[in-house]
Simulated assay, not measured.
Amino acid sequence: MDSEKFFTNKKAVILLASFCCILWGSAYPGVKIGYALFEISTNNVFSELSFAGYRFIIAGLMVLVVALCTSKHLFTLTWKNIMSLVLLGLTQTTLQYVFFYIGLAHTTGVKASIMNGTSAFFSVIFAHFIYKDDRINFKKTVGCILGFVGVLLVNFSSDLLNFNFKIIGEGFVTVAALAFSVSAIYGKKICQEMDSVIVTGYQLLIGGIVLLLMGFSGKGYMTHFTVVSTLVLLYLGLLSAVAFSIWTILLKYNKVGPIAIYNFLIPVSGAILSAIFLGENIFEWKNAVALILVCTGIYAVNYQPNKRSKRALKKRSDFV
């Protein structure tokens, strides 16, 4: 089975896309734990950026080493390829994670994971204007409304009397989701001309270097390296290397919509893992309802009846 057949196989897509989203969900408690182990305070923005820089440099190098070991041509790039990779690295890694790391430091892992669900809705909106066969319709509109209601709900207090939304917290996480949606569509375009693994490796490395330089520019140096803190950093790098590599390949061979449906696993896994590892309250009623609304909205946006269901509906309409 060649690469295209494998990565378009329905069972393979389900397993791989779900695996990616669970990995990304684990980043929420992972980053928060990393802050604690490296003793990075919520106000130390430049150290947060350095932390992100180390993570993505490690991730990029991991991907490129694998690419080199599998005989891929890493150094046969044109100036056009280089400029495309730089732009992708600055948007998909640098821009996204500047907002993600700062935002996550000022909100809970549960709230951040639910807010991140907006990336699926941004993808739907952008796809409407970019792809002729992926227009917004009634079910997508309903899905987007459900999702945004869920996002609003999670920012209210338990008695629904106070709206708790911090620009530098939940707002930044939302901007990160927006950056991910835009850059993923751009990355899909680049991968039509370049190898997906090479694209992933270079964009992670380039974005990580810029993040690290930004951190160092404000003297945000990393300290408190221990065995445990280093293992957490390596895990965060590994999950990015694996998740971004697989996701990029899936987007290359599939439409954006059918893949985006699996994004609902990010808020689910992120919220559950944050509750387990950070002791955060996922069982508060508004969090549970918000999670259900976001996941239902994402599913509704991307749901497509299978061919058998479509034939049944057609026969029913013909009969009527």
Results as ranks from 00 to 15, higher is better:
residue 174 T to Q: 12
residue 130 I to A: 06
residue 151 V to L: 14
residue 127 A to P: 02
residue 161 L to P: 01
residue 128 H to A: 02
residue 158 S to H: 04
residue 141 T to G: 14
residue 164 N to Y: 04
residue 167 I to E: 13
residue 181 S to K: 11
residue 166 K to C: 03
residue 137 N to T: 08
residue 165 F to R: 05
residue 126 F to L: 14
residue 184 A to H: 10
residue 139 K to Y: 13
residue 180 F to G: 02
residue 142 V to L: 13
residue 129 F to D: 06
residue 186 Y to F: 13
residue 175 V to C: 12
residue 154 V to N: 03
residue 129 F to Y: 15
residue 168 I to G: 07
residue 168 I to A: 09
residue 162 N to D: 12
residue 133 D to S: 15
residue 175 V to M: 14
residue 141 T to H: 08
residue 132 K to I: 04
residue 155 N to Q: 11
residue 123 S to H: 03
residue 128 H to I: 05
residue 180 F to Q: 07
residue 183 S to E: 09
residue 183 S to W: 10
residue 173 V to M: 08
residue 153 L to C: 10
residue 168 I to R: 11
residue 141 T to R: 03
residue 141 T to K: 04
residue 123 S to N: 12
residue 142 V to W: 02
residue 178 L to V: 04
residue 170 E to Q: 13
residue 162 N to V: 08
residue 136 I to D: 05
residue 129 F to H: 12
residue 154 V to Y: 06
residue 144 C to L: 14
residue 171 G to F: 05
residue 185 I to L: 14
residue 182 V to M: 10
residue 139 K to F: 14
residue 141 T to C: 12
residue 175 V to N: 11
residue 135 R to L: 13
residue 136 I to K: 07
residue 188 K to L: 01
residue 187 G to N: 09
residue 176 A to V: 03
residue 127 A to E: 04
residue 163 F to Y: 15
residue 155 N to L: 12
residue 130 I to T: 13
residue 160 L to H: 02
residue 165 F to N: 07
residue 151 V to A: 07
residue 153 L to P: 01
residue 124 V to R: 01
residue 163 F to N: 00
residue 169 G to S: 08
residue 181 S to L: 03
residue 128 H to S: 08
residue 159 D to F: 05
residue 152 L to N: 07
residue 181 S to D: 01
residue 136 I to E: 04
residue 133 D to C: 05
residue 171 G to R: 10
residue 129 F to G: 00
residue 174 T to N: 13
residue 123 S to A: 14
residue 157 S to L: 05
residue 156 F to K: 01
residue 156 F to M: 09
residue 177 A to N: 02
residue 144 C to S: 09
residue 164 N to T: 14
residue 139 K to L: 11
residue 159 D to Y: 03
residue 145 I to C: 01
residue 135 R to C: 09
residue 154 V to W: 06
residue 126 F to W: 12
residue 170 E to M: 10
residue 160 L to G: 01
residue 181 S to M: 08
residue 127 A to Q: 05
residue 154 V to E: 00
residue 164 N to S: 14
residue 186 Y to K: 01
residue 143 G to Q: 03
residue 154 V to C: 10
residue 162 N to A: 13
residue 152 L to Y: 14
residue 166 K to F: 12
residue 149 V to T: 14
residue 150 G to R: 08
residue 151 V to C: 10
residue 123 S to G: 11
residue 145 I to T: 04
residue 130 I to E: 08
residue 146 L to W: 04
residue 138 F to W: 12
residue 165 F to I: 11
residue 127 A to Y: 03
residue 131 Y to K: 12
residue 155 N to M: 10
residue 180 F to V: 03
residue 142 V to E: 05
residue 152 L to W: 15
residue 137 N to E: 11
residue 135 R to K: 15
residue 139 K to P: 01
residue 184 A to G: 03
residue 168 I to Q: 11
residue 171 G to L: 09
residue 154 V to I: 15
residue 179 A to C: 15
residue 160 L to R: 03
residue 185 I to G: 04
residue 129 F to W: 15
residue 178 L to T: 06
residue 185 I to Y: 06
residue 187 G to S: 12
residue 175 V to E: 04
residue 144 C to G: 15
residue 188 K to V: 06
residue 136 I to M: 15
residue 133 D to L: 02
residue 153 L to W: 05
residue 125 I to E: 02
residue 178 L to F: 15
residue 179 A to F: 10
residue 188 K to A: 00
residue 169 G to Y: 07
residue 139 K to T: 09
residue 130 I to N: 10
residue 140 K to W: 05
residue 133 D to E: 15
